[in-house]
């Protein structure tokens, strides 16, 4: 099985996020970037499948120069090679444009499986995996908490509202994983050293055959009209339990008509 893992560099979850004043995109320069947490589980799952059944794991990232940090991390965890789609023309791409660009880049990499995180912590849309499956005409196996690879087929347990569905499909397939699926490994010192020598291909729009007017702010089908920092929440009332904490809370609930 040859596997491509899509990883995204996102602003550190704990950092205070900012939006650029000029074009209302996420300001990726002013805060530290990290690998999207959920993509670590995607990398781990790809490595486990490779360790069990062979093949190669390629990391694919679309993002500014800085995203190389995230690529390095995936390589030091054990991925074999990486493709970095980087071009000024991509800045401001929405989900429609991102899925188009990723699909084009995937066209340059031989693969049986594409594995993604279920959601990016910045965009939080949870749509790129389904959109990629649609674009590639590949089976969609998303929200997986368990993946079993067979001979030319893949079976997953898909988390649902009420439990899980067992879903099976032939390869090629697009998989997204939830955080219940595994425990991502930490890069070892050896892994970090080895990562420096692993092949990294950089693709521009032209290299991937991406039409410039279908990506970036101009090619996106959604426009952010207005952004407002939410007014700071009024500090709530906090009481220390002196044996009457439950009663006080009940009084508050009653004052708000919940009781």
């Amino acid at each position: 099985m040859n596997i491509v893992v899509c990883v995204k560099q996102v602003p550190d979850t704990w950092a205070e996020k900012k939006l650029s004043a000029t074009d209302k995109t996420v300001d990726r320069e002013s805060v530290d970037g990290v690998m999207n947490e959920l993509d670590e589980y995607a990398v781990e799952e790809a490595l486990r499948i490779k360790e069990a059944s062979g093949g190669e794991v390629t990391v694919l990232t679309m993002g500014p120069d800085k995203s190389v940090e995230t690529i390095r991390k995936a390589l030091s965890m054990g991925a074999d090679k990486a493709v970095h789609l980087v071009d000024a023309g991509l800045h401001g791409s929405d989900a429609l444009a991102t899925s188009y660009a990723l699909a084009k880049a995937l066209g340059t990499i031989e693969h049986d499986l594409v594995i993604l995180g279920v959601e990016s912590t910045d965009a939080r849309m949870s749509v790129v995996p389904a959109m990629l499956a649609e674009r590639l005409g590949a089976a969609q196996l998303t929200f997986a908490r368990k993946v079993e690879v067979g001979d030319g087929t893949v079976k997953i347990e898909r988390l649902t509202d009420t439990g899980y569905d067992v879903v099976e499909a032939p390869t090629p397939a697009v998989i997204s994983v939830v955080e219940k699926i595994n425990e991502p490994r930490y890069p070892s010192f050896k892994g970090i050293m080895a990562a420096k020598k692993k092949p990294l291909t950089t693709l521009t729009l032209a290299d991937a055959g991406i039409e410039a007017d279908k990506v970036g702010l101009g090619g996106s089908a959604t426009t952010v009209a207005d952004v407002a920092a939410r007014p700071p929440k009024q500090a709530g009332q906090i009481v220390k339990d002196e044996g009457d904490g439950g009663t006080k809370l009940a009084e508050f609930l009653a004052s708000q008509k919940f009781v």
């Binding site: 709530g236 009481v239 220390k240 904490g245 809370l249 508050f252 708000q256």
Partner: peptide, 22 residues
């Protein structure tokens, strides 16, 4: 940081009292 109303205390004391009161 998010609350409208918070109780600093042991839930094993606060919650049964709250339920009873409701």
């Amino acid at each position: 940081e998010l609350v409208d109303f918070g109780v600093v205390g042991d839930l094993f004391n606060v919650v049964p009292q709250l339920t009873e009161e409701i």
